[in-house]
């Protein structure tokens, strides 16, 4: 689980071009959107595609994203439970 969380942080920093953010700067329970890391709706689309591409998880209801992408903890938990690859 810890390796997955590390992987997610690295992906978010690299894929979403968070130039001034390091892996250590993101706590596992930090909010990813809004006041936390400050991600926005376009980032949410990037994360949905990432779930499909990297873990074989298709989100049929985008509204699910709100809970799944709340933090690194919630993302890792969802991926662990639903991953296909």
């Amino acid at each position: 689980m810890d390796a997955l969380k590390q992987e997610l942080k690295e992906f978010i920093i690299e894929q979403l071009n968070l130039e001034d953010v390091n892996v250590e700067d993101i706590a596992n329970d930090d909010p990813l959107f809004g006041d936390g890391l400050g991600l926005d709706s376009i980032d949410a689309l990037e994360l949905i595609v990432m779930l499909d591409k990297n873990y074989g998880i298709k989100l049929t209801d985008p509204k699910q994203g709100r809970a799944i992408f709340e933090s690194i903890d919630t993302m890792a938990a969802y991926i662990t439970e639903h991953r296909a690859n």
Partner: peptide, 13 residues
């Protein structure tokens, strides 16, 4: 590279 799958919006827009 992705065989027309998994297209993300950022580069396109």
């Amino acid at each position: 590279d992705n065989d027309e799958q998994y297209l993300t919006p950022t580069a396109f827009i």
